[in-house]
């Protein structure tokens, strides 16, 4: 009876562990009450980390900008200039119009998404465990594993695309682009349908690419963390330094290390791709067809 209970506990606790890690601290979980309209069920953890990282980004960059000198730059200014130069090069390479918004937008996207992705490299249990200490039961620390965050950014970019399309080409030009390409005026509905899919695919792919990569990455970190957890759960009554636990621990360390190192590439790459595609999409919005 007791044995059966423990065996059941193992997988069940692993599932609980994963589900727990993938649950946002939304209003319902925070207040332990249902909401009449699930729309208002704000993900407090996602917004908290997004805002905090955003403030860290603009704060530290503002520090460099406020004291920016054209003489010999300090270490931090030098680093900031390195990133600004990098972003500026990308913008100048891909975007040929003149816009005061696109370069700072690209900089914000790159740095902010990088920082949000970087939360993935913080040990999966560290912040949630600290949260538990102060009574916060659920916490997802990587904002970009939240669809709301990813779509929030891609939809903003999408709105900018529409804004610039209309601003540059006028309402008529934009409408012409929507209805008369690629098959001429006799195929108007079909053209529009095609264009609609084409345009909607942009924000959707932008958001889902970022979300998918980070969500999967986070999930794998969680699964790697399960190694010692499940081994520990099985041998809970036994000596914790049993051979099985030690082996599981070593495997977890190696896998975690390997995945984290690989993930350094992923988080940078995803931030870069999001930025790059934003520049390209906005540059397309600026171009006449």
């Amino acid at each position: 009876m007791e044995d059966a209970h423990e065996v059941n506990e193992g997988p069940a606790s692993a599932t609980d562990y994963i589900v727990h890690h993938l649950t946002n601290l939304d209003t319902e979980h925070a207040l332990h009450t249902g909401l009449a309209n699930p729309f208002w069920n704000l993900h407090w953890d996602s917004i908290f980390f997004a805002v905090t990282l955003g403030i860290i980004f603009v704060g530290t960059f503002y520090l460099a900008a406020r004291k920016a000198t054209s003489g010999v730059p300090g270490a931090w200014q030098n680093f900031v200039e390195l990133i600004v130069e990098f972003v500026d090069t990308q913008v100048k390479d891909s975007f040929h119009g003149s816009s005061k918004v696109i370069a700072p937008l690209a900089l914000t996207i790159f740095c902010w998404i990088f920082l949000m992705n970087f939360m993935d490299l913080v040990p999966v249990d560290l912040l949630p465990a600290l949260g538990l200490l102060v009574g916060i039961e659920y916490m997802k620390v990587v904002p970009t594993t939240d669809l709301n965050i990813a779509f929030g950014m891609s939809i903003t970019v999408f709105l900018l695309m529409i804004f610039y399309s209309i601003k540059i080409k006028g309402v008529g030009g934009f409408a012409k682009e929507l209805f008369l390409h690629p098959f001429g005026k006799w195929m108007m509905p079909f053209n529009f349908l095609l264009k609609l899919v084409e345009e909607l695919a942009k924000p959707v792919s932008l958001a889902l690419r970022l979300f998918g990569n980070l969500y999967a990455g986070e999930l794998i970190f969680i699964l790697i963390a399960l190694f010692t957890l499940s081994a520990g759960a099985h041998s809970l009554g036994e000596n914790l330094t049993s051979v099985g636990t030690i082996t599981a621990f070593i495997i977890q360390v190696i896998l975690g290390l390997a995945w984290a190192i690989f993930h350094i590439l992923i988080i940078t790459l995803q931030a870069f791709i999001f930025m790059m595609l934003t520049i390209v999409y906005l540059s397309m919005a600026h171009e006449e067809h």
């Binding site: 729309f39 208002w40 704000l42 996602s46 917004i47 914000t108 939240d146 709301n148 965050i149 950014m153």
Partner: peptide, 12 residues
Amino acid sequence: INVTLFAQMLVF
């Protein structure tokens, strides 16, 4: 998807 999305857009 919920209000978090709009909050994120605002912050962005």
